[in-house]
Design a protein around this nucleic acid. Sequence first.
DNA 1: TTATATACTGTAAAAATATACAGTATAAAT
DNA 2: ATTTATACTGTATATTTTTACAGTATATAA
Lengths: 205, 205
Amino acid sequence: MKELTKQQSKVLACVEVYLNKTGFPPTRAEICKELGFKSPNAAEMHLRALEKKGYIAIQSGSSRGISVVKSQQNFTQSPDQMPVIGLVAAGSPTLAEENIEKRIPCDPNMFADSFDYFLKVKGLSMIEAGIHEDDLVAIKKTTDVKNGDLVVVRLEDEVTLKYFKQNNHNLELIPANKDFSIIEVDLREQEAFVEGKSVGLIRTH
Amino acid sequence: MKELTKQQSKVLACVEVYLNKTGFPPTRAEICKELGFKSPNAAEMHLRALEKKGYIAIQSGSSRGISVVKSQQNFTQSPDQMPVIGLVAAGSPTLAEENIEKRIPCDPNMFADSFDYFLKVKGLSMIEAGIHEDDLVAIKKTTDVKNGDLVVVRLEDEVTLKYFKQNNHNLELIPANKDFSIIEVDLREQEAFVEGKSVGLIRTH
DNA sequence: TTATATACTGTAAAAATATACAGTATAAAT
DNA sequence: ATTTATACTGTATATTTTTACAGTATATAA
């Protein structure tokens, strides 16, 4: 099987992801939108190349007439098992096997945004936001967070779940419980690592 | 899940076979050709019926925008699309398509107990249990509930989510908000229908 | 007897989509 | 220095496809 160029590989992945999410293949225009191309012909050329190399088949004249012949990644057909990580007092939440308490079968796209793992909540600092002890907060690994986001932040070796608010070098980590006080950090004096942000929550009754 | 008519069943099978063979869904015209209809509207009507009964989802305006939600055969392994139902003021929560606000890809076994649908929470009566407006409560259809369970109960045409407590003919539906009062029902005087119980909760941030 | 649901035909317009053609730009190969 | 392959933009058009509307026919329920 012939090698794919970087862009061809991206296009194939895009088709596969779309197919997985919607159940039918994307149009040229949709591929463009996803990958940032400005001409439908960009997608067309890549698709033709993928066809030539035997990765897809194109039904000429049919809309969305793409079928994936040889998948790049092996999509697991069974439901994903998303890991649950305890909010350990020390160190970053890592996906190392020893930190995974258990796994929950669910779709990483079940919330508005995709997520990477569940964080098990300890303590009552966010209770007024309806976040209880042992709730599982779905975390997307990212450093791209805005004021007001519910974020996972590491200070020294302490990991915490709080609302995020930053003005220049002044970082505030805001709890949702009047018995707790705001954590203020001067970023010139102390480092803070944003591990990710919450995109959702689940709780077992 | 509602029963299908003979023709609807044929159309669903046709879609599934086509999907299996080509990798993308058929158009109305192709369904007609396959099943011998002479008008694309014949296929259209059957597809709309299948959508209403929850077997497929149709992406409006998209060509071939059909995704099979609930397969007749059991060969689609894609993650289940669990329905979200609004807590309507009147009548039971039903799974008829007109009551389904959207669907969420997730595993029906993600909680300790399996569930049938999500109920979208209205109001603040359970806020002290960390259940907010617009949270989605996972409901298992059952009448087998115990005191202390979080249940969906219908009184007359009112559907409500409360804690369950019953002593003989005396039923109490207990909110989790000090501004709300307990609903007391004498079962000799008034009927109460237990629609199901909550097995979990999800919230999108 | 009059609805009501199922099950279509036939037509047509609007919208979505594939796809051809004419270019531009860049890097690597010859 | 010129070709060749990759990687696009931009435009236009023919075709595909959805979808609304107006009917017809039949069986079943109220």
